[in-house]
Simulated assay, not measured.
Amino acid sequence: MTATVAAWILLLATAAYACGGGVDYGAGFWDLTAGGTRRGRRPRDLIDHAMEPVWEVNNVWLIFVLVLMWTGFPVFFEAVFSAMWLPLALAAVGLVLRGAGFALRKPSRRLAQRRFFGAVFAVASLLTPFFLGAAVGGVASGRAAPGTPATAHVWASTTSVVAGLLAVAATAFLGAVFLTADAHRFDAPD
């Protein structure tokens, strides 16, 4: 009974992270495609304004999911994190680079620095959901069982690649929906 309750809480927390964090990753996708300095200024201002109050908070859901998975399902946690260590490590690096790029872009005075940090933020916003999706695809395809060796075969399968691409597409969609609503709220339809 308690495992079932923990599994439902894990599912709800994962959905909360997918929605909240997905919007942020999607905003990074739209930041990447916003255009050059002049054309992309207004979309990037909207992205910054929309993300500033919540971009750090969304990762609390991820930490909650990891702690719940670790304490509620330790064998599953060990199987996933030993077999999927590479995509999960790349996703963690992406989280750090993404946060650093977002935090350092705005206070940078030189255009070259703003572009560099903006590119770090945008590219990491694509790579992080891709690697998280690839890990989910590996788990969904049954490749992360206890005792599975950590090889590319575990997470670089067709299912994992498709799941990673779907994660990027889903976050881009979530980001577009949120940013469109935010633009409407701030009377900025362009």
Rank of each mutant, 00 (worst) to 15 (best):
R105Q: 13
V80H: 01
A34Q: 11
A176T: 06
A140G: 13
S157W: 01
D48V: 09
A144T: 08
T2Y: 08
A119H: 10
A156I: 01
F116D: 03
V168A: 05
G72L: 08
A135C: 13
D182R: 15
C19Q: 09
G22Y: 03
L95N: 06
G94L: 05
A16K: 03
V161E: 08
I47F: 08
A188E: 14
I47C: 08
A122N: 01
V96A: 04
P146G: 06
L95E: 00
V120F: 00
W55E: 06
T2N: 14
R114M: 07
A3V: 10
A134D: 10
V57K: 03
V65I: 10
G147C: 10
V161C: 03
V136R: 13
A89T: 13
A89Y: 04
W85Q: 05
D31W: 02
L166A: 14
T14K: 05
W55I: 07
A183H: 10
V177K: 06
G99A: 12
G20Y: 00
T151R: 13
A34Y: 09
G133L: 06
A135E: 12
P189I: 02
A100I: 01
G175T: 04
G138Y: 02
H184S: 11
G21K: 00
A181V: 10
V54D: 08
G35C: 09
M69P: 04
